[in-house]
Amino acid sequence: MDLISIVSIFVLACFVGYFVVWSVTPALHTPLMAVTNAISSVIIVGALIAAAASGNPVAKWLGLLGVVLASINIFGGFAVTSRMLAMYKKKER
């Protein structure tokens, strides 16, 4: 992908983010933070590439540490979000 296409994706995604986030109900703002936390750990992609690459052992270990940190966030973030969301219940009628 060239720079122009990734800038286009970025700008459009900012607009999508703007509209999607305004539609989130305020009652779910804490789960919103928890889940955005989990998905921003998609940075694990970079850590996986660094950990798998040969050539520089320091970079590799930095990558492995990055994988650990990001996966704490991924698993912890999604799990705590789903734990919170399970608590939101409607009135029993």
Partner: peptide
């Protein structure tokens, strides 16, 4: 917990950045 999770994302970004700097061809 949310603050702690944020710090991990931040540190992971720093680590990935450092790894990319040290081994740019891999990226």
């Amino acid at each position: 917990l949310v603050a702690a999770f944020h710090s991990l994302v931040g540190l992971a970004a720093v680590l990935v950045g450092a790894a990319a700097y040290l081994n740019p061809e891999a990226f």
